[in-house]
Amino acid sequence: MLKEKKVTALLGSTRGSKTVTESIADYLRQNFKNAEINLIQYRAHQIFQNEKEISNLIEDLKDSEVFLIVSPVYVHSLPYPIVYLMERIENLTNKKFWGNKFMAAVIHNGYPKDIQRKSSKEICYNFSKKMGCNWLGAIGFGGSPLIAGKPLEEVGWFTKNMRKSLDEFSKNIINKSKISSKAKKYERKHFPSIPLHILKFIMNILNKKKAKENGINLYAQPY
């Protein structure tokens, strides 16, 4: 069990507060709260240009046993503010700081296949390893547009396995154990097996309909 009743999370979405990143963080916060553990969160895009906020993040990390990254994928890796903060944290801390700490990540995007989240998970792992932190593991989920910043419970059946995976993930964090095969099993079951050409067809119909309603040309080539 965690000795310090505190987990510090860095959130990667640059969009504001109604995001899938926040939906996931809120869900985890409730799970941790049930175990009397406080989740402190920092939105990377709100703090990366503010030295005082970066200091606050380091202070919170100092007395947290677990550092969590919850982030979307931007162009097949982590968003700029997260990469920037990783570089800053590397310069502001040392191996002694990280030696007794644990790290894990939850990565999400719209795409169904795990390969489209793999590089972001690996970047988190590499950061953890370079810092000398104990890596617990990462899970990831596709289908972000279907969640669209809503509480995960409200989304219904689509997040059923995602929530089960996050429940297992939370237990693992609380027990400082490696992310379990059970969490991974539900992660794999999250996205329903719909043939990609059908998914593509549906998504394109929706986007083209929206473009027609708004009178825009999706295929414009301004350059």
């Binding site: 982590l78 700029y80 920037y84």
Partner: peptide, 11 residues
């Protein structure tokens, strides 16, 4: 940077 491009390029 940790397997990624550095933040300058990533931006």
């Amino acid at each position: 940077s940790f397997g990624c491009y550095n933040s300058q390029l990533k931006k």
